[in-house]
Amino acid sequence: MQTKLTINGNEHDLEHDTRTTLLDALRNHLGLSGTKKGCDHGQCGACTILINGRRINACLTLACMHDGDEITTIEGIGTPDNLSPMQAAFVQHDGFQCGYCTPGQICSATAMLEEARMGWPSHVTDDVTSAPDLTDTEISERMSGNLCRCSAYPNIVDAIRQVSEKTT
């Protein structure tokens, strides 16, 4: 079947199997391999991308369900010559080692700050009617959908906290 996908502002006409997930469309069909496959079952977060500004697992959605959506992948967040503040903070704080979960972490963190800005509570928010401060614990809980086996977690929290403080 055919689907028109808008990725990082560019339109792509994709001829594909109904079974093709958005993740496989990116990696196997469109050459956008910055989005990683770590588990293919929504259990690791390496494939995190943004759909209309919201973070999702690209492995658990079909490409054919996304025509008309604004898709942002790591390639649309920044480039080596023009890093986003989050990407720069990850480099500065060594928020990764092997780097495989990193695009997903950065997409997730980027969208997560927006969720926090909108006042969304989290599991560790004591009073769900409040708009919580983004403490380290809040950052950690909100980033717990992105596994990192190298365990750069403390550095990831440092990087996100820095970006959060600069933008608020």
Binding site: G42, G45, T48, I51, R54, R55, I56, N57, L60, T61, S108, A111, M112, E115, P121, S122, H123, T125, V128, T129, R142, S144, G145, N146
Partner: peptide, 22 residues
């Protein structure tokens, strides 16, 4: 959140930010 805080508490204890968005 105001009237049925039990519900967001349960929702937010499940899955992840990414999965809950879908």
């Amino acid at each position: 959140r105001r009237g049925w805080p039990l519900l967001p508490k349960a929702l937010l204890s499940g899955a992840t930010g990414q999965l809950r968005n879908k």
